[in-house]
Amino acid sequence: MQDLVELECKDWARKNINIKYEIRDNRKGYKAGALKKGMEHTYAQQCDFIAIFDADFQPDSDFLLKTIPFLVHNPKIALVQTRWEFVNYDVCLMTRIQKMSLDYHFKVEQESGSSMHAFFGFNGTAGVWRLSAINEAGGWKDRTTVEDMDLAVRTSLKGWQFLYVGDIRVKSELPSTFKAYRHQQHRWTCGAANLFRKMAKEIVKTKGVSVWKKLHLLYSFFFVRRVIAPILTFLFYCVVIPLAVMVPEVSIPVWGMVHIPTAITIMNAIRNPRSLHLMPLWILFENVMSLHRMRAALTGLLETMYVNEWVVTEKVGDHTKDTLEVPLLEPLKPSECVERIYIPELVVALYLLVCASYDFVLGAKHYYLFIYLQAFAFIALGFGFAGTSTPCS
C-alpha cells in the first residue's frame, strides 16, 4: 500500500503539484503520533486546514471544494465532519449489521448534535480541521487510543464549533472479519472510557465553559454512552434477565425489558427500512458484542494492562497485495476452518443455556425463548461464525 501511495505522489509531483510523501520509522503514539509528527513539517505548518483520511477511505476529487468553504466563511468552525459510505456493507451479515449501527450513529448522534449546535465527536477520518484550532487545543495527544475524541473534546472546551455535513459522503470499508471487528470495538470503547477517566477533572475545572456544556460532556457524552451503556447492556440483558428465571424474587421493570429496546429498535429501523428483517439479528449481535464492549470499558476505566493496546483494524484490501489495483472491495473467500474460538462468549452461552433450560422445564416459561436465542448467538460468535474468514494457519 505504501509503495502505491508513494508512486501516486511522485506521479502528481511530476505534474508540478505541491505534494509530499512522508512516513516514519516507528509506531510511537500510533495514529496520534503519526499525526503529530506530520504536523511538525514546515509545509504543514504553513497550511490553514488539514484533511484526514484513513488508508481505506476514498474521497471524491471535489471533496475539498465542498468542505473548505464552510471553514472559510465561518471562522468559528474548527471541524467539518463528513459522512462515511460503506462500499462493502453487503459482503456478509456482519457488515450489514455494522452499517445499521453506524447509520444510527451518524444520523442520530452526529447530525442531531450538529443541528443543535451541541458537541459531537470527531470520527477520526473523513474530516477537515482548522489548523489554528488544533494548535489552540494543544495538538494531538497519544494518551489514549481515541486521539480523535480527545482532540475534539479539548477543542470544544476552547469554544470552537463543529459541523457535520451528511450530504458529503466518503467511500470506506467496514471490517469484515469478526477478529478485526472485535479489535476495532475494543479500541473505540476502551479508549473512550479511558479518556473519560483522564479528562473528567479537566472538564470540571475548565473556566469559561457553561455548566450545561460540562454536564453534557461528562454525563451524556461520556458517562452514559461510553461507560454505562456497554456495561449495563451486558449485565441487564445477558445476566440479570437470565438469572431472574431462577430467582423469582427478582422483578424486571417493563421499561427495561420492553420500552427501551423497542425504542432503540424503532430508531434503527427508521434509518434502515430495507434491513427491517435483520433487526432481530442486529439485537442479538449487539448483545453478544456488549460482553466485549463491557470488558473494554472496564479496561479503560480501571486503566488495566491492555488499556493502550492498538491493533490496526484489518480490512479485506490488506489481502489483495498481489495485484497492482487494490480494489476496496473483493470479499475474502471463506476458509473451511474456524479461525479462532472465543472462550468468554462460549462461557456466557453455557450460562444462558442453563438459564433457558431451567425456565423451560421448571420456571414460569416467560423468557426461555429470548434466552435460547441469545445463547445460540453467543455460540455462533464464540466459534467465530461471523463475517468472512481468513485462512487458518
Rank of each mutant, 00 (worst) to 15 (best):
D3G: 10
C9F: 11
K10Y: 11
K10R: 11
N16G: 15
K20H: 14
Y21C: 08
E22L: 06
I23A: 10
I23S: 14
R24V: 02
D25F: 00
N26H: 01
N26Q: 03
R27P: 13
G29E: 01
Y30M: 14
A34L: 03
G38R: 01
Y43G: 02
Q45D: 07
Q46F: 15
D48Q: 09
I50E: 02
F53L: 08
A55C: 13
F57D: 11
L65S: 14
V72K: 05
A78P: 07
Q81A: 05
R83M: 15
E85V: 15
L93V: 09
L93I: 11
I97Y: 01
Q98N: 09
K99L: 08
L102G: 04
K107C: 14
E111T: 12
S112D: 09
S112H: 10
G113F: 00
S114C: 05
A118Q: 04
G121P: 08
G124K: 03
G127S: 06
W129L: 03
R130E: 04
A137I: 06
G139K: 00
D142I: 04
T144F: 03
T144W: 02
T145H: 15
E147I: 13
M149F: 04
L151N: 08
S156C: 14
K158S: 15
V165L: 13
K171Q: 10
L174P: 05
S176R: 07
S176M: 07
R182H: 02
G191M: 15
S210G: 03
S210F: 15
K214F: 12
K214P: 07
L215D: 10
L217Y: 12
Y219P: 01
Y237F: 12
P242V: 08
P248V: 14
M257T: 09
H259Q: 13
I260Y: 11
P261M: 09
M267Q: 14
I270S: 08
N272L: 01
P273V: 02
R274D: 10
R274Y: 02
I283A: 09
I283N: 15
L284S: 05
E286V: 14
M289C: 10
T299I: 10
G300A: 11
E309L: 10
W310Y: 14
V311R: 11
K315D: 10
G317H: 02
L328V: 06
L329N: 15
K333D: 12
C337Q: 10
L346M: 03
A349T: 02
A349C: 02
L350E: 04
Y351P: 05
S357F: 12
D359S: 06
I371M: 02
Y372E: 01
Y372C: 03
A377Y: 00
I379R: 00
I379E: 00
F383C: 04
G384R: 00
A386T: 04
T388P: 06
